[in-house]
Nucleic acid binder design. Structure first.
Lengths: 228, 228
DNA sequence: CGCTGTCTTGATGTGAGTCAAATCTCGTGG
DNA sequence: CCACGAGATTTGACTCACATCAAGACAGCG
């Protein structure tokens, strides 16, 4: 179950520089008396469903979240992956329904803002409004990159491109958590489970990637072989 | 050559209700003393190139414009089509380069706004800022619909879906201008010229669509046959 | 009237989907 | 601690949708 963890202490928040409050002074923040609540979600839990009425927006503190659009024919398309500092559910500011279903891929800690509050907030503080616009622009840009990849690349290229990007902001010495099933990788990249599995298994056999309890590592000379 | 046609008369503009000035009163508009210029472009002319420095944003008055992203390997992806009332080049407000190459598909008349002006404008007039945010949101939504279509649909479905949507805001009794070559339809839908041509020719033969100097008409019982 | 570019059509190849089954993994309860 | 079962992953055999390659047909325009 999603659990309320605490009233968020935005002022001292570890990720504030990444958040939409980055541009505010400590005084600003104190003055706002923010109605932000930190929530804990387990892997697999749903934040909200596509088509439901927007109530809150979220900022990812820790963990990974996917935004999915489901089709009547049962197919799913993951349209975005969110990690620390990313925001989601903000379409609620503008639209009367959520456009996606948001699901935690890992245990996740998120900061929850009521949309009503956020609305007045963004009216009062230009810095916040500014930050939201920035987010919107970069999200659009990311979506368009996805369009390009889906429209012009073949399976192995899409998978390789994704892995290299994903592992780029990887921690440690090469190992990056990859909390997506093959199924989900497929739903993100427009491929079937089998195709994803075949390429990964193949690359693993050739020593190009390694996998170990949910973490992945790109070894050897990149780039990944785009052909088979 | 792109030609300056006139200083735009925004107050009496036919498409003002569709534009970002929709929310302003006549007095507001008068007060602004807008530096908007109406420009004429011929089919095939370029508004700006991907990667170049943003100077102006545009609102389509008449005509159709494509936004294209080109890849090093020579492939192109059309990421958006713009028609009357749509705006483009607005990423310049936020970013230091244009993200796409913008090209007129038909003879086009557009209203040109300096980004510098627009910037101060959106600061002074909340209604404009609001309108911009709305546009951003709906553009993002459209991009995500494209992701879903590219990721989950097969050739004939993508083509059929596109045609039905395109012809939906079609004028007259069924005939809609379709100023895209098969090549461009392919670049929009992630297909080759041949595939596009085959389906269209096939549907034409079966009397499902008609084409006549640049116009198309969906006849017969929709929906288009999604299989072959 | 011929040239250039777009569209159509055919023949062929292949990338990736589908179907099916074997293995692997991991959490649960005995 | 082990056995079991559900789900995830891998692998193989086969199919098919779409790309590719190659010509022709068909404009539109100088």
């Amino acid at each position: 179950m999603a659990t309320k963890i605490a009233i968020s202490d935005c002022i001292n928040c570890r990720i504030r520089p990444l958040s939409i409050f980055a541009g505010l002074s400590v005084d600003d923040l104190r003055e706002l008396d923010m109605p932000v609540i930190t929530m804990g979600y387990e892997a697999g839990e749903t934040f909200y469903m596509e088509g439901s009425k927007p109530i809150a927006a979220f900022t990812v503190n820790t963990g990974v979240v996917k935004l999915v659009i489901s089709l009547p024919n049962g197919r799913n398309q993951i349209v975005r992956l969110l990690t620390t500092g990313d925001i989601f559910g903000f379409e609620g500011l503008v639209d009367s329904e959520y456009h996606h279903t948001a699901v935690a891929l890992t245990e996740a800690r998120v900061c929850r803002l009521s949309l009503a509050e956020l609305n007045t907030l963004s009216r009062r503080k230009p810095a916040i409004r500014e930050a939201l616009i920035q987010r919107w622009a970069s999200t659009l840009r990311q979506a368009e990159r996805m369009i390009v990849e889906l429209g012009t690349m073949k399976a192995s290229e899409r998978l390789a491109t994704f892995l290299e990007r994903w592992c780029a902001h990887g921690d440690m010495e090469g190992w990056t958590p990859l909390p997506l099933t093959r199924q989900e990788l497929g739903e993100l990249l427009g491929l079937t489970v089998e195709t994803v599995s075949r390429f990964l298994a193949d690359w693993k056999r050739h020593g190009l990637i390694q996998e170990k309890d949910g973490k992945i590592r790109l070894t050897g000379r990149r780039p990944l072989p785009l052909g088979r």
